[in-house]
Amino acid sequence: MEYILAKYNYWIYILLMMIGLYAMIAKNNLVKKVIGMSIFQTAIIVFYVSIGAKRGASIPIIAHGHGHDVIATAVSAAEYANPLPHVLMLTAIVVSVGTLGVALAVCLAIYRRYNSLEEDEILEQLR
């Protein structure tokens, strides 16, 4: 029980990733597949942000860090959450809106040509 509770974020990220992967493969509707892709992406982001969390740490902005006089005071690394995963995931979220835009554009182009968003109907027309 303790083993499960100690790593609950990792279990949830795996669950979300499985939901996303299942939707990408098994759903018939193209927009549903795109939603599955977005869920998959957020699952990865949950994983990274969970890695960056630290017990008893504050947000990664140094308190009273304005101006020139504060530079002398030493900053303890244990007081602040790990900023590196945050940076990687911040850009990943913005890139995910780019991939989402391209994916939806492809869906619209497919709809314009086949007048359907259902995978099996498009495959029938392609035969």
């Binding site: 100690a6 790593k7 609950y8 974020n9 990792y10 969970s50 890695i51 960056g52 969390a53 630290k54 017990r55 008893g56 740490a57 990664p60 902005i61 140094i62 308190a63 860090g65 304005h66 020139h68 504060v70 530079i71 030493a74 900053v75 303890s76 690394a77 244990a78 602040y80 790990n82 900023p83 590196l84 995963p85 945050h86 940076v87 911040l90």
Partner: peptide, 30 residues
């Protein structure tokens, strides 16, 4: 989860946290 001594939090990130003010004068480490 949230272990302060995990490998991800002990190698590179302490450098960013401790040096951001002296290197760049920007308190938001991100």
């Amino acid at each position: 989860f949230a272990d302060p001594l995990s490998p991800a939090s002990t190698h590179l990130s302490p450098y960013f946290i401790t040096n951001t003010l002296t290197d760049t004068a920007v308190p938001n480490i991100v």
